[in-house]
Structure formats: C-alpha cells, structure tokens
Computed example of a mutant assay.
Amino acid sequence: MKLFDVHNFDMKKEQDFLQVQFNLQNRINLSPVIHPDSVNTCAGVDLAYWERDGEPYGVCSIIVIDADTKEVIEKVHSVGKISVPYVSGFLAFRELPLIIEAAEKLEAEPDVFLFDGNGYLHYNHMGVATHAAFFLGKPTIGIAKTYLKIKGCDFVTPENEVGAYTDIIIDGVVYGRALRTRRDVKPIFLSCGHDIDLESSYQITMSLINQESRLPIPVRLADLETHVLRTFYRKNHV
C-alpha cells in the first residue's frame, strides 16, 4: 500500500506531514494479527546518519533472525542521500525511503518488524514503527531507547526486576510501556506499531532479550550494523 511515492517525496510543509499522519491514524490496528507463539522470524530495523560536504546521508540496516534459535537468517541494507528535512515529530518521513528500499531486498519474510524508534508512543500515534507498517504489510513494534515526552507527561520508572513495566497513560489513553528488560539497566520504551496489541508486543520483545543488551536481539544487531556500515561508507565516500 503506497500512500505517497517515497522515492520522489518532496513535502516541505508541516501541514502536509500532519495531513498524512491524520489520514493514517484511523487505519491503525491495535489488535494482533499473529500470536506471539506463532512468530518464527523477527526483523530489527535501525538507521544511522552522517554528513558529507554539508549534505545528510543515511544507512538503514534490517537484520532477520530466527525467533527460536536467535540465529541471523538475513542481513540487508540501503544507503543514500537524505532528501526529506528533519522536522520534530515527523522522523518517519525522513527514514521511510531507506527503510522501504532495504525491505525490498529481503528474501526472508519476517513475521514481525521491531524498530529502533517509537510507534504508537508518538504525538500523533505515528512513530516510524507505525508509519512503516503500512508499507511493510507486517506487524510492527516500536522500541525506543529514550523517552518521548508528550503533553508534559513523564513515565513512572518500573521496578528493578526483569520484565517489570509501567504503562504510559496520557489523557486516559495507553501510549506504550516503560519496560525493564534487565536488572540495574535503564528501561526501554515499548509501543505498538500496527497490527499488534501491547501485550503481544511485550511478550515478543521479552522473548528476544539476552544478557548482552537491554534491547531485543534483532534491534541491537541492526543498531550495531548501522554503525559498521556508516564507518564504511564515510571512509569510502559512497
């Protein structure tokens, strides 16, 4: 489903960004289309940026793992000049072209995509994990390392126990969860993307945590890979 051409995208006005987000809001599905126990493959998605000659460039890494063995099945990436300017609250517009380009290279078909970024936990419920789902056609989950403060609302720190969480409720609406995936480590901020509910997102995320990171394995691997790729492309001026 292409709601705009991400390969020829030239929106400059905040109002245009808002209109696209509002058009998509009513299509967000917070009911699961897959049960956590039925997930066989998971993909982690992350991006990294740099500048060359004053121009922004980016690289997107997608890493697919086996949900049971946690072994890497496939790695793909895309790289290119960033044509959409950064506007607070509209990061997805900046990242979508590279995300979709990378996803089109996948031979594996992930059951769920986990993003290094927000989903429903967003000013307009349209973080990158939610927005990208309308192109990927799969359930998505947002995993943010830092808290996006909305309407001045802070989160309640969860207890220092693995799996402890507190729901982030703003104006009576559950936006996401502050989740403690490891003891003595800062929480992550979990939110639904699309075609999934918060409890399923929680179960899938917790099933992908190991002792190496507070992040679920595919997101951590994608994060590490983007740093390697950024170093390579910076050095080789590609």
Rank of each mutant, 00 (worst) to 15 (best):
G54D: 04
G54E: 03
E55V: 15
P56N: 00
G58S: 12
G58A: 13
G58H: 10
C60T: 08
C60F: 09
C60W: 04
S61Y: 09
I62Q: 03
V64C: 01
I65H: 03
I65R: 06
A67V: 05
D68M: 13
T69R: 09
K70N: 02
K70G: 00
E74P: 03
E74K: 05
K75I: 10
V76C: 07
H77W: 13
H77V: 03
S78R: 10
V79G: 12
G80T: 03
I82V: 12
S83C: 06
S83R: 15
S88H: 08
G89H: 00
F90D: 04
P97G: 07
I99V: 12
I99G: 01
A102M: 01
A102V: 02
A103T: 10
A103C: 06
E107G: 07
E107A: 05
E107M: 13
P110Q: 03
D111N: 00
F113Q: 03
F113N: 01
F115A: 12
D116Y: 07
N118R: 05
G119I: 04
G119Y: 00
Y120M: 06
L121H: 11
Y123S: 14
G127I: 13
G127R: 09
V128Q: 12
T130S: 15
A132E: 01
A132C: 00
F134Q: 09
L136D: 00
K138D: 04
K138R: 15
P139N: 04
P139A: 01
T140C: 09
G142C: 13
G142P: 04
I143M: 00
K145A: 02
Y147E: 08
Y147V: 00
K149V: 12
I150F: 07
V156P: 09
N160G: 10
E161F: 11
G163K: 10
G163F: 08
G163H: 02
A164V: 00
Y165H: 15
I169M: 14
I170W: 12
I170F: 03
D171R: 13
G172N: 11
V173D: 08
V174G: 09
Y175Q: 11
Y175M: 15
R177Q: 06
R177W: 06
A178T: 01
R180V: 14
